[in-house]
Amino acid sequence: MGENERRYFEEIQVGEEYVSPGRTVTEADIVMFAGLSGDYNVLHTDAEFMKTSIFGERIAHGLLGLAIQSGLLTRGMRPYATLALLGLRWKFKGPIKIGDTIRVKARVSDKRETSKKDRGIITLERQVLNQRGEVVQDGETDVMVERRGG
């Protein structure tokens, strides 16, 4: 079975665990995300101001961390036959600073049928860890996944 072959709802089991490779978050990532989102908050863009803040330096946008973990996890698992991301419940627990290296651990915490027979919902619990093993973000995501028969 190919490494990139998509997995269907019935093949995914509660309790499966995935671990992503690491990725070092750079200044360039933060600048690009500011440009992409339009979020130029001083937290992410003013190095001098941030020297006086509780963080002592610029920090990555929380949503940049969310976006990067989303991409990282695709490199730690075979893809699902995803139809859509349905929602998420997410906490930003600590800062991601320039030069920090983050990775994602995930676990299938729930799978449930829907009213449509050709699909189901998979819930993944995710933890984003930095190079010291501290959890900087965590939460759950719900994805709609096709059934093979669908």
Binding site: N41, L43, I54, G87, W90, K91, F92
Partner: peptide, 20 residues
């Protein structure tokens, strides 16, 4: 950040619950 009212002085983004 481009809303008509002034931006909040955000110290940290704490969390999000989101539905698509």
């Amino acid at each position: 950040w481009r809303n008509p009212h002034p931006p909040l002085v955000v110290l940290a983004f704490m969390g999000v619950e989101w539905n698509v």
